[in-house]
């Protein structure tokens, strides 16, 4: 190891002897510190949570107070719950779309279940995502699809309709089956299900 000329050279660095006075002073001061040494007060178990709380309790308290105040102001109500729901629905649709690419016709949400309707969707350039909801009592089926899609929705009842979802000129949605038409202006039920629909 010492064959390296650099190592041989470095060895030449000698260290001066420290002054005895400085050594004694350091011993004296460190002994004083030793007498007043910090005892670990926190056990390992409570360490993380307690330290975090100890460090951030002021910020937490401030956040709680701020949230409480904010809820009383009118501007807080400007955040539309529908907007949040819309972005959630769009996110779901785009995630499923990534999985099935050009075979996805519709995404069906029923309770906690997510089903997909696969097929050959109509390819409309710039098509927007639509949301159609069928509800009967507590039962709700939410459908996400692109405009122009032919939906096969598993509704309980005699009729198993194929509904085409189309946008209207005023930004609404119209659903058309063989002998069935639904729009906001002409609402009607199908197999006892109420319908609501909108563009996302």
């Amino acid at each position: 190891m010492k064959d390296d000329p650099i190592e041989k050279y470095l060895v030449k660095l000698e260290v001066p002897t420290p002054q005895q006075e400085a050594v004694e002073r350091a011993l004296h001061r460190s002994t004083l510190a030793f007498k007043n040494r910090v005892e670990p007060k926190i056990t390992q178990r409570e360490n993380t949570v307690f330290k975090w709380f100890e460090k951030y309790y002021l910020a937490v308290a401030f956040a709680i107070v701020f949230a409480a105040f904010a809820s009383f102001f009118p501007w807080a109500e400007r955040v539309c719950p529908a907007a949040s729901e819309t972005s959630d629905l769009l996110a779901i649709y785009s995630e499923v779309k990534m999985l099935f690419q050009n075979n996805l016709v519709a995404v069906l949400l029923q309770g906690s279940e997510l089903k997909v309707q696969l097929g050959v969707p109509r390819n409309v350039a710039g098509a927007r995502v639509m949301f159609v909801e069928f509800s009967r009592g507590d039962e709700k089926i939410k459908v996400l699809c692109l405009e122009g899609s032919a939906l096969r929705v598993p509704l309980q009842g005699k009729v198993q309709p194929v509904l085409e979802a189309m946008p209207t000129a005023d930004g609404g949605v119209i659903l058309m089956g063989d002998s069935f038409v639904w729009s906001r202006a002409m609402p009607q039920t199908i197999n006892g299900y109420n319908i609501s629909a909108r563009l996302l």
Binding site: P18, Q19, A22, A26, S30, T31, F34, R37, E39, P40
Partner: peptide, 22 residues
């Protein structure tokens, strides 16, 4: 420097003594 090294060594032992429990 030698003097600073003495100061540094003192600081090291003061801290070590204070936080020995850690």
């Amino acid at each position: 420097s030698a003097e600073d090294a003495e100061d540094a060594a003192q600081e090291v032992f003061v801290k070590a003594a204070r936080y020995l429990e850690t």
